[in-house]
Amino acid sequence: MAFSIPITDVHSWLLAEFPNLRNEQHNVTSLYTDEYNCVAWAAADTERWWWPSQNGYWPEDLPLVDSVENFVRAFQELNYQPCDDASFEAGYEKVVVYVGADGRVKHMARQLDANTWTSKLGQAWDIEHASPQGVECKTYGQVAQFLKRPVKTE
């Protein structure tokens, strides 16, 4: 089921919603869909919409609260641990958590390499952007938590 989006100019929409993208390289990397969101995408899950709510997926042992602490606990179950910053570290995967002015979690992004991050933009597209700050905005707030885990080796 494709989510019906009432816009025609993706590029203009991106720059209006995320003004910081004017200053950094970015590109759209998927079709739009409402089947997964940024948290699912950070967890590499494209089958479910993750959110601590009655209609979202959330680990059963955690409360339905959109606090940073609760998101950290959810990602600790995926072997992530808090870390100091978003710098690239060989051998580690990193994700970041964004918090709005109301103190509640609004967004997550995942690091792909030293110069590239990826975000699922709500009910819309996946994009790649150069830094976590690229998608800081009124809707997503600012980066408030960094997490990392060792890269899985086959």
Binding site: I5, P6, R104, T139
Partner: peptide
């Protein structure tokens, strides 16, 4: 419905969407 779709399409927070 059109206003809701347009103004929430970038949101991931189910709380904010609702």
């Amino acid at each position: 419905a059109e206003q809701w779709r347009r103004e929430t399409m970038s949101m991931s927070s189910s709380t904010d969407i609702a």
